[in-house]
Design a protein around this nucleic acid. Structure first.
Length: 366
DNA sequence: GAACAGAAAAC
DNA sequence: CCTCCTTTCTGTTC
């Protein structure tokens, strides 16, 4: 197969839109969905804001206190709500089920995005793909009362950027023939993989647009960004992306991180908190029938520097005691060696495999 | 080639 | 003032 059609469906300002749906009177107000850290009354960060709130410079990642200040300065009343992940997850699951039915190949990315390869069912025809995209938007709206933005392109990269340029409630088609003219004026920041740091670095090379990036010498890109990223930038800026739309069945890792009430290096305080995180990770592990072989801990220090330590075990296991014991040892070692105070702490299991039944293990043995 | 630590990004 | 979760890549070390 040489020419594909890929859709990226992005649920608009998802958490905030879920809350608007549950309580339609919110729709004309700034809605700010928050992750409260529990340090002080309003400590924490903004997870998602609706477009009314965005007009006042409120977007994901900024401190809740700053978001409140912005609305106060504008003399506007806002609605601040804590994230209700189980509620959003239920809605997401229902929508993903709808989307799946429209795809030859389906790949969910996060809670609010999915790629659909629709090459076969549209016979690689963009008019049919546009028709399909409209049906999807309609279906999601009537069944779940939520809007989404859809990008249609010859690959995942272009579909993603296409969905990005018009939202909320957008539909953008970019035919293979139009890829170069579509991409070249866009700022490099639009490319997946270009964040704040990389944008800065590219700017020192006088690269601000995707077009400028596409004309830049690939060897030099590799020197500056390394083999993978350098090659990726060259291809991406030229609209080239061969990655397939593929469901990922097993997660690579499961983790939980949490903010401490106050900074500390007191091991018993930390372990008390961290063991609860272990229990939560373990519950998820058991629920998915997975075993782990590596255990990691995370420490975000007072100065927000991030540190990690990890240990790989001899054999895969699902044992919670092994998990907690390994975590304890890693934390003890970290704090005796570093002397840092922790602001946030986390745990992670990785190197995951399916827990096999004894039946299956026997079968594999023979 | 595996294990480990850190950086960066996206969500 | 600064959340949470996951993936991918890089350099280093053994």
């Amino acid at each position: 197969m040489q020419s594909r059609i890929v859709l990226l469906v992005d649920l608009d300002y998802f958490y905030a839109q879920c809350e608007e749906m549950r309580q339609p009177s919110l729709k004309d107000k700034p809605v700010v969905i928050c992750v409260y850290s529990g340090r002080t009354e309003d400590s924490g960060a903004v997870s998602t804001a609706n477009y009314v709130a965005r007009k006042y410079g409120i977007h994901s990642g900024i401190p809740i206190t700053l978001a409140k200040k912005k609305l106060k300065d504008a003399k506007i009343e806002g609605v601040f709500l804590p994230v209700d992940l189980p509620f959003y997850k239920k809605i997401s699951d229902k929508i993903m089920e709808i989307l799946r039915d429209y795809a030859d190949h389906f790949e969910q990315v996060g809670i609010d995005e999915a790629y659909l390869d629709v090459t076969q069912r549209t016979k690689a025809n963009y008019l049919q793909a546009e028709d399909l995209a409209r049906k999807i938007k309609n279906n999601v709206l009537t069944k779940e009362r939520l809007t989404c933005s859809v990008g249609v392109g010859p690959n995942k990269l272009v579909a993603k950027i296409a969905a990005d340029v018009k939202k909320p409630d957008g539909l953008t088609l970019v035919r293979a023939h139009d890829v170069a003219s579509f991409l070249s004026p866009l700022p490099v920041r639009r490319l997946v993989g270009v964040g704040k740091k990389t944008e800065k670095k590219l700017e020192t090379l006088n690269i601000r647009t995707v077009g400028q990036l596409s004309r830049f010498d690939i060897q030099r890109l590799i020197e500056v960004f390394g083999r993978k990223l350098g090659t990726y930038f060259h291809n991406a800026s030229n609209g080239i992306d061969d990655t397939s739309v593929q469901e990922r069945s097993m997660p690579e890792s499961l983790s939980r991180i949490s903010t401490l009430k106050e900074n500390t290096k007191n091991l018993s305080i930390i372990l008390d908190k961290v063991f609860r995180l272990c229990d939560e990770v373990h519950a998820k592990l058991a629920q998915r029938g997975l075993v782990y072989r590596s255990v990691s801990i995370f420490i975000v220090a007072e100065d927000l520097s991030v540190h990690s330590r990890s240990k790989t075990l001899e054999n895969p296991t699902s044992n919670i005691k092994t998990f907690k014991k390994t975590v304890s040892e890693l934390f003890e070692k970290f704090f005796t060696e570093s002397g840092l105070e922790a602001r946030r702490i986390g745990v992670k299991v990785s190197n995951l495999t399916k827990k096999e039944t004894e039946q299956k293990q026997l079968m594999n043995f023979f």
